[in-house]
Computed example of a mutant assay.
Amino acid sequence: MSRWQVRTVPFKFQLSDLTLFSIGLPLQVRAERLSDRTAPVVSITPPVDELQPGSQGFVVRGLPVAQSLPTLDQRDGWLFYVPQEYRHCFIDLTIGYDSYLAKFSSKTRSTITRKVRKWAEHSGGTIDWRTYRAPEDIDAFFDLAVPLSKRTYQDRLLDAGLPDSPAFRDEGRKLAAQNQVRGYILFHEGQPVSYIYCPVEEGVLSYAYVGYHPDYMKLSVGTVLQWLAVEQLYAENTFRIFDFTEGESDHKRLFATDERLCANVFMVRKSLRNQLLVRAHRTMDRFSGWLGDVVERAGLKARIKRLLRFAR
């Protein structure tokens, strides 16, 4: 059974986290899942599936690859574009909590423990955090997490904040009724400061939506909540994998037990318009990368990223 979904896929023209504009292209989209156990590929070939009406091609997100692929190639009337390769990080929840702790160096464990202790002291000696999993709880989670999400850079810059729609809430209630969702919120003086929302499919929790209050960045509230949630998941012993999904970050690498090389692969019908779009997007990505290297060498990258993410 095909898992392709026809969507208008945005080609975002960005400088770091700042989206300047985007251009949409109708494509058939599929995401590879950890539960699929797809073997890594060494080269790209177009799917055997037919193009649906209006579709300009295919996108496979999170495709496991055996080696780095060419960023842009063309043959047989197709453009093959790989704008992103990354280490897909995840936590094996079947190894037991003691084995999980053993993956960290003593220095790293000490650092995380210190951050948790510092947050406890900041909170008056007690950490206030909650798990949301039952149908009667999930609306309370959304009521608390959605306003927080609107203050995060994920929402403002990346259009990746927690959705606030009746349909999304209905889906959350359905998942909760099947014990297929977990929501986590960390509080300070009764106000939410960090959240994680994880739907579940085939025993795999997805790190779908996450964010924290910018005023609490220096107190590592995202790290604190992640640490508490993972400890609880091992104690619960219900799920197989915590999937950090697409993209790399220091946070994901810190907490992950495993990783695999993956790529987002676009296979687009060759036409003048599509060539201009793909090549322009590639040029913008390369310019953004070059500019990032320049400001990093100047010692300004972290400061500029903070300004982009947290300036109000």
Rank of each mutant, 00 (worst) to 15 (best):
R7H: 08
F11P: 03
F11R: 03
F11A: 01
Q14W: 07
L20Q: 08
S22P: 02
S22D: 04
I23L: 08
L27C: 03
L27I: 07
P40Y: 08
D49R: 11
E50R: 15
Q52N: 06
V59K: 00
L69F: 05
P70A: 10
L72G: 05
P83Q: 12
C89I: 03
D98Q: 15
S99H: 12
F104G: 14
I112D: 05
R117Y: 14
A120F: 12
H122K: 14
S123K: 02
G124N: 01
I127P: 02
P135M: 09
F142T: 05
A145K: 10
D164S: 13
F168I: 11
F168W: 05
E171V: 14
G172A: 13
L175S: 10
Q178E: 11
N179I: 15
I185G: 06
L186N: 01
F187T: 01
G190Q: 04
P192R: 08
Y197E: 02
Y197A: 04
Y197I: 05
C198I: 09
G203C: 00
A208H: 03
H213R: 00
M217C: 15
M217G: 10
G222D: 03
L225H: 04
L228T: 12
L228G: 08
A235W: 03
R240L: 10
T245N: 07
S249C: 00
D250P: 02
A256K: 05
T257H: 05
T257D: 09
A263V: 06
L277N: 02
L277C: 06
M284S: 15
W290Q: 15
L291Y: 14
V294C: 07
A298G: 12
I304Q: 00
